[in-house]
Amino acid sequence: MQKKKLLKKIASYGVEKLFLLSACVAVLALLVIGVYILVSGLPGMFKIGVGQFLFGEKWSPSEGYYGILTMIIASLAATIGAAVIGVGIGVPTAVFLADIAPKWAVRILRPAVELLAGIPSVVYGYFGLVVLVPFISNTFGGAGNSLLAIIIILGIMILPTIINLSELAIRAVPRSFVEGSLGLGASRMQTFLRVSLPSAKSGITASIILGVGRAIGETMAVILVAGNTPQIPGSILDSVRTLTINIAFEMSYASGIHREALFATGVVLFAIIMILNFTLQAVLNRKAGTRKRRRAGVKPR
């Protein structure tokens, strides 16, 4: 009897530690990758000169120029554009799926969205290359390899993330809130805009952040349609090179300071993703905060 109890205790202790260990692996992986990138990239950045590296417009390793301003701008522009498309189409789609759509429409739409999420990024890129790029070239002129092509492809790619998570958030709004509002004589639209949407706000925010994170880090699909010229785009029809492309393109043959510059590009990408996440979260939260304060009858600061 005593022995059995002891065994049980040991087993429960072991399982507990096993779970803890599993949780540690994820954190450890993040730490290792983060440290590795910083250690490999920062020295190069300092050798080149931080200002020279971040704000230099010329990238030409053979001549010793390592400026990535063009790529920072390209990455940001592509991400913002994709977010506009993704949010603009994704959030209304989520609303439609969660609240308005008749059952048969949901039955078609939901699998379609899920399928969209399952398409490998290289296929998106290929589709962009053989369909979108020629289309842009024929319609607007130019080569077709362009910022616009990236924006459209990325916008479509992040749709499933935004749609799925936003729909979940809207569906998670308790039915009692909706009934309470309708019971007070509010219309369905008023109920949706004034009760459901504010209640689902944090979930929708999370979906946008995840979508944006995916967009800025995407490489494969982007490589195929970007044109890959390191220049500051004058219009959305110009060819660009993003930070991710820069790394993927040149890493295989780079060495010495060139290699370090590519790692430094990774550091910048890492930093941008962090900053983007934090600002997005802060902006969306603050916006909600002022609205709440205003509603409560206090002037926003």
């Binding site: 509002s181 004589g185 004034r194 009760v195 509603r295």
Partner: peptide, 18 residues
Amino acid sequence: NPFPFSIYDNVAYGPRVH
């Protein structure tokens, strides 16, 4: 089933909607 708003906003909800 109060809404996840402030007490004031809960009561003011109906009048505002109307």
